[in-house]
Amino acid sequence: MITQNKILLAGMVIVGIAYVYQPANAETASAAVLANTCYSCHGTNGKSVGDMPTIAGKTKNFIVDKLKAFKSGAKSSTVMMRITKGFSDSELDAISGIIANK
């Protein structure tokens, strides 16, 4: 796990630097790519069109608290407890930051 995290962080740093050079309206990898994984169930930019909860329009703190509660099991869920366990706390933090700004 330690090696994995190191590789992941290394990748994020590279992308983080690259982000500076992106056109102003462009999204790029790293946090944005992580947040993109949410949209397959919660709709583009977190705006759900069906029975999935909409996650757009919430504050960063609200989202990150929910995600961490799913991960720890403090908040019950069907699938979110299985999904949040695949992300580090810093990734959940980064994802929440992106979604909150949508």
Partner: peptide, 24 residues
Amino acid sequence: KVCAAAVSNLLQGQSPGTPKFVNT
């Protein structure tokens, strides 16, 4: 999504990001 991010970066001479995927 991961491939599009990588291609977008590569077209601009940047390195592709580290991917993460979810499947349900």
